[in-house]
């Protein structure tokens, strides 16, 4: 800051920063909220099927949908009980 702006108390224009931050967060939240909401159901069904064969805990099955570029990746992670 120059000595002039020190004297006249020039303020930093921060609105553009606010706008950029909002553009990012709003786009992100819209994408995550408008995503498919069948994931909890899918997880429940998977638990039901897999428990027929293994004694699994509902928390040991994780289902997630991720966006990678143009693709959506459905990730299912099942932790089988130890000692089998």
């Amino acid at each position: 800051m120059s000595w002039l702006s020190l004297i006249f108390g020039e303020k930093k224009p921060t609105a553009s920063v606010a706008k950029e931050r909002l553009q990012l967060i709003i786009a992100h939240e819209r994408a995550s909220l408008s995503g498919p909401d069948f994931l909890p159901d899918l997880q429940r069904d998977l638990v039901a099927v897999i428990s027929k064969y293994f004694p699994v805990n509902p928390d040991d099955i994780k289902v997630g949908l991720e966006k990678q570029g143009n693709y959506e990746v459905l990730e299912v992670n099942i932790v089988l009980p130890e000692g089998r």
Partner: peptide, 13 residues
């Protein structure tokens, strides 16, 4: 003065 979002900014968002 660029300290506050303008109404057009908000409408765009």
């Amino acid at each position: 003065e660029g300290e506050m979002l303008t109404y057009t900014d908000i409408q765009e968002l």
